[in-house]
Design a protein around this nucleic acid. Structure first.
Lengths: 199, 199
DNA sequence: TATATTCTTTACCGGTTGGTACAAATTTAT
DNA sequence: ATAAATTTGTACCAACCGGTAAAGAATATA
């Protein structure tokens, strides 16, 4: 179980976090059904035996990827907060930056939203797991909004829970709308308008 | 070509609009990749020969479905407008009703949004076709907002084009967020908050 | 060295995939 | 009746699907 303790048996030639990252990127861009086990083997750089020995099945791997995935932009948001940026400003920058990314990135959308979209009628277990991740992000937004309110920078009197749901809905929407309009200009006005609610 | 003129040859035993509707419902609930040609044959009630003779391929059928599809709620909106309902009120009722539908309906989401989500990295032709349909809906919203503005019922001074994009983004977002929260109450407050922008 | 344990390689599997070929069936026009 | 045109049913296809089995390779412990 423990990786630092020396275990009997042949050591594995791959690093769990590395191959999981590779699998996540492929699932993210192609979705579940359109990503074949063969495709996964290739980007993960492992043989069929190792793959099924380590992860059990394509579905089990997808579950694991869902659990460990974090969207790069969310990572940046957390980093900005950790370096002292005020919560409300960090949120605004987070959403404004969604207009500016290259089209190739925009086309991937949100892994969790994609999963809900693809699998809500096909595999409620996976779809629910994705929902839970987005709900966690929503709670994180609510927490930041509470901080901003305490600091007096948030004027909107609506409950943080509702405003956080508004932000998640903005995230969900933009990850579709971004793919309709790769052009940043088409999105900047929209995002500015949306952010007036937490001005 | 023309259906009313009698053509030589065996008459087809299916009605185009009927089988197209059946195919649309299946594509809508399962997406493109997870809907097999075999599945389609069954719900369309036709044999393999007829199917490929009439539609050429699964992809060509999907294209045709994308072109003719109209979301039932959009149909209701147009009907309400045709029967004299004021544009702005019709829009508000349209979005408020999204909270109330049964979970089974909510799980389908928006066929165009689903298509963008699934295929933007897999088949830009189909994804773009879905985008165009949503852009047409956006123009329709803009038209209604212009009417409301002319009637003096829309106070928000933002350009109709931007507000319409806001509404499309609301639609796109809700069709994901609805699947996170099948419970109407979780959605009603969100929708009410969102609609304050066109109050 | 022997043994237990774990990972890797490779060959293989039945089922499903989207699609084709073609003859039979059914119609209209001559 | 015959020919031309169109649709239908069926048999068939190679390619791909996710997954398994088994034997060998590499490590730790005794």
């Amino acid at each position: 179980m423990c990786k630092v303790l020396k275990m009997a048996g042949r050591p594995s030639q791959f690093e769990q976090s590395e191959v999981l990252k590779a699998a996540a990127d492929l699932f993210w861009s192609r979705g579940y059904a359109s990503t074949s086990a063969e495709d996964l083997l290739q980007v993960m750089g492992m043989g069929k035996g190792s793959f099924y020995h380590a992860f059990g099945s394509k579905r089990a791997l997808f579950e694991k990827v869902l659990d460990q995935f974090e969207h790069p932009r969310i990572g940046e948001l957390k980093a900005a907060l950790a370096s002292g940026q005020p919560p409300l400003e960090a949120i605004k920058i987070f959403f404004r930056s969604m207009a500016l990314e290259p089209a190739q990135i925009k086309r991937n959308g949100c892994f969790m939203g994609n999963t809900i979209s693809e699998l809500s009628n096909m595999d409620s277990g996976l779809s629910d797991a994705a929902s839970l991740r987005l709900q966690a992000l929503e709670r994180f937004f609510a927490h930041l909004l509470d901080q901003a309110r305490a600091a007096g920078t948030l004027k909107n009197p609506s409950p943080s829970v509702i405003l956080a749901r508004y932000l998640i809905n903005l995230w969900n929407g933009l990850n579709i709308t971004r793919r309709m309009y790769p052009d940043p200009k088409a999105l900047q006005d929209l995002i500015a308008l949306q952010l007036t609610l937490i001005d």
